[in-house]
């Protein structure tokens, strides 16, 4: 059966994931070392140790995301995160930075290393470099590949692959996006925050809800319409087209979430080891519902049964789902 890797932003969400059937849970420390550094979220050292014990007692693994890029001169925070994750009994750490990978490989030779999606390793050469240089055992593939491309990559590498099957989508090269830091000075890659809440402001203006990120008005949602996350990449902007005529729309990406449920059998056939659910910033209600649905789906795939669809529509951003690049017809 494919491994189901599930998000947990809090100890309660971790327990909910375990209870709902997660094979592995990924989480992070409450600081800049992980890409979901949101207010009130994440784990202290003690909470991680308790979470690992809880998961292990029930046959689940815990992976610790330390997947931001350390600032020069401030590496100690990231180094201690790796050491503390190992001390807490984590089954693997998920890293993106090449320097941190080198550090972990040298100082923590018994710690299993996974390559974060933030490293954007999207071809066999890049993946093999990480595997040969640092002993990376699993790579989380960026959300830009088709199922056929994933199958082709798997034929040329000797490490496990993990792919996202549900949750928020990034349209940019992961780990390279500068939109959030352009608008706010804070980025997912360095500070662990995409569109930090400290820079988001909502207001009702003339019957519509306006969302601002920093100085930018990024959405004006009519009353009763579905609202997206306040990220620039999902923003609705007015700009001139090629003929100079003004148009308003989602310039970068429509606000929709990934739901690749129906592609699970194809991903299994493509040699994918693990399926990942996005959403450490979401509640334990989200975790419980999504994990339960996907656990049933991977069990159904294992038995060769058809995949269900549309069960989780309400939980998706924009309440719309897409199979993203996995089944893309565009280039």
């Amino acid at each position: 059966m494919m491994e189901l890797v599930c998000p947990a932003g809090t100890p309660a969400a971790l327990r909910a994931a375990v209870e709902a059937g997660a094979h592995a849970i990924y989480c992070g420390f409450a600081d800049e070392t992980n890409a979901r550094n949101f207010p009130g979220l994440n784990f202290s050292r003690e909470e991680l140790a308790e979470g690992v014990a809880h998961a292990h007692a029930r046959g689940a693994k815990v992976l610790v995301a330390i997947n931001t890029f350390p600032r020069a001169g401030d590496q100690a925070l990231w180094h201690s995160a790796v050491a503390d994750a190992e001390a807490a009994g984590a089954d693997a750490v998920i890293l993106a930075d090449i320097g941190l990978l080198a550090h972990a490989a040298e100082k923590h030779p018994n710690l299993r290393l996974h390559l974060s999606v933030q490293a954007a390793a999207a071809n066999p050469d890049a993946i093999n470099l990480y595997a040969e240089s640092f002993g990376v055992r699993r790579v989380v593939l960026p959300r830009v590949l088709t199922v056929d491309e994933i199958a082709a990559i798997n034929r040329e590498i000797d490490v496990e692959t993990e792919v996202f099957v549900f949750g928020g989508l990034c349209v940019m090269a992961e780990g390279r996006c500068a939109l959030s830091s352009y608008a706010t000075g804070k980025s997912p890659n360095m500070n662990g925050v995409c569109s930090p809440a400290s820079h988001v402001a909502y207001a009702e203006v003339n019957g519509a809800q306006e969302a601002r990120l920093g100085d930018f008005l990024i959405h004006r949602t009519p009353k009763g319409a579905v609202a997206p996350y306040p990220t620039l990449c999902k923003g609705c902007f007015t700009s001139p087209d090629a003929k100079g005529e003004v148009q308003t729309g989602h310039i970068f990406e429509d606000p929709a979430s990934l739901d690749a449920t129906r592609l699970i059998p194809a991903l299994q056939k493509a040699g994918v080891t693990a399926l990942k659910i996005e959403g450490r910033q979401r509640s334990r209600a989200y975790v419980a519902q999504v994990v339960r649905a996907f656990r049933a789906a991977v069990e159904a795939a294992d038995r060769g049964q058809p995949m269900p669809e549309g069960l989780l529509a309400k939980l998706t951003e924009g309440q719309a789902a897409t199979t993203g690049a996995y089944a893309k017809t565009w280039r």
Partner: peptide
Amino acid sequence: TSSVVALRNALDDA
């Protein structure tokens, strides 16, 4: 918005 997010996460964990 930061305060709302923090409150939501703290209550959810509790």
